[in-house]
C-alpha cells in the first residue's frame, strides 16, 4: 500500500529519512556566523560561495581516469606523472590546488593503497568527494594494520609475493594510484581506456576493469 507508512519504508524499499528538526550544532552556528560576516564585510559574496560549491560538486573520478588513461598511452607522460603528479595533471588542464600530488604505480609486484589515518585527506581535485567509507574509522584504522584483509573485502585478492604499499596521507601530499593497465586493451582509444578506470582503482581498493566486463 503506497500510503501506508507504518513500516517506514518508501515505495523503493528504503527507510524514510527523518526531518532535520534538531537545533543547529555549535559548529553549524559558527559556520553560518563566519559566512555571514565574510559577506557583510565584502570579503566574499553568496554567488562566489555557490560558484565554489558548484566547482567542488563538478569534480568526479572522470578527471583522475583521464590522467590515468593518458599515462597508459604515453610513457613520457607517465614518467612526468610519477615524478611530479601536480605538474603532470596541470599539463592536462587539471589544477590539483595547493596540495602536492604524488602518483604511485601498481605493477606486477606492488599494489598501492591510500588511506588517511588522521582525518580524511583525499585527492578531491582529481576524484571529487571521497566515499563515506574512506572517512570511516574502520577503513582508516584497519588499512594500515591489515591492508590485505581490507582489500579482500573489496574483492581484491593479492598473492603472497605481491608487496602491499600503504600510503598514509598524513600531511601536505595527496595521493592517486596509477592502476595497472588491463590486458587485451591494445586497440582501445584513450577515452575507452579512461572508462575502465574506476574510482576505487585510483584509491587502491580496486583494480581497473577489464574491457570484457
Amino acid at each position: 500500500m503506497p500510503h501506508d507508512h507504518h513500516d517506514h519504508l518508501s515505495p523503493s524499499g528504503h527507510p524514510y529519512r527523518a526531518d532535520d528538526d534538531t537545533p543547529l550544532s555549535y559548529w553549524q552556528t559558527m559556520e553560518i556566523a563566519v559566512r555571514e560576516l565574510l559577506v557583510e564585510k565584502n570579503v566574499t559574496t553568496p554567488e562566489e560561495i555557490n560558484a565554489q560549491i558548484d566547482k567542488m560538486d563538478a569534480r568526479s573520478p572522470a578527471i583522475g581516469a583521464a590522467v590515468v588513461a593518458r599515462a597508459w598511452v604515453d610513457p613520457d607522460f607517465k614518467q612526468r606523472l610519477l615524478k611530479d603528479g601536480s605538474a603532470a595533471s596541470l599539463e592536462m588542464g587539471f589544477d590539483v590546488g595547493p596540495m602536492h600530488l604524488i602518483a604511485v604505480e601498481n605493477t606486477q609486484d606492488t599494489h598501492n593503497i591510500i588511506v588517511c589515518t588522521l582525518c580524511s585527506c583525499y585527492p578531491r581535485n582529481l576524484l571529487g568527494l571521497p566515499p563515506d567509507w574512506y572517512k570511516s574509522r574502520a577503513y582508516r584504522s584497519r588499512t594500515v594494520k591489515e591492508p590485505r584483509k581490507v582489500l579482500s573485502e573489496f574483492g581484491v585478492t593479492l598473492g603472497e609475493n605481491v608487496t602491499v604499499r600503504v600510503h598514509d596521507s598524513t600531511a601536505d601530499m595527496r595521493y592517486v594510484v596509477l592502476p595497472a593497465r588491463p590486458k587485451d586493451t591494445d586497440g582501445l582509444s584513450e577515452a575507452e581506456l579512461a572508462s575502465l578506470v574506476t574510482r576505487d582503482s585510483m584509491i587502491g581498493t580496486g583494480v581497473a576493469r577489464n574491457p570484457s566486463t
Partner: peptide, 9 residues
Amino acid sequence: NPRDFIEAE
C-alpha cells in the same frame, strides 16, 4: 605479510 610497507609523511 613481512614484505609489506606502510609509508607516511
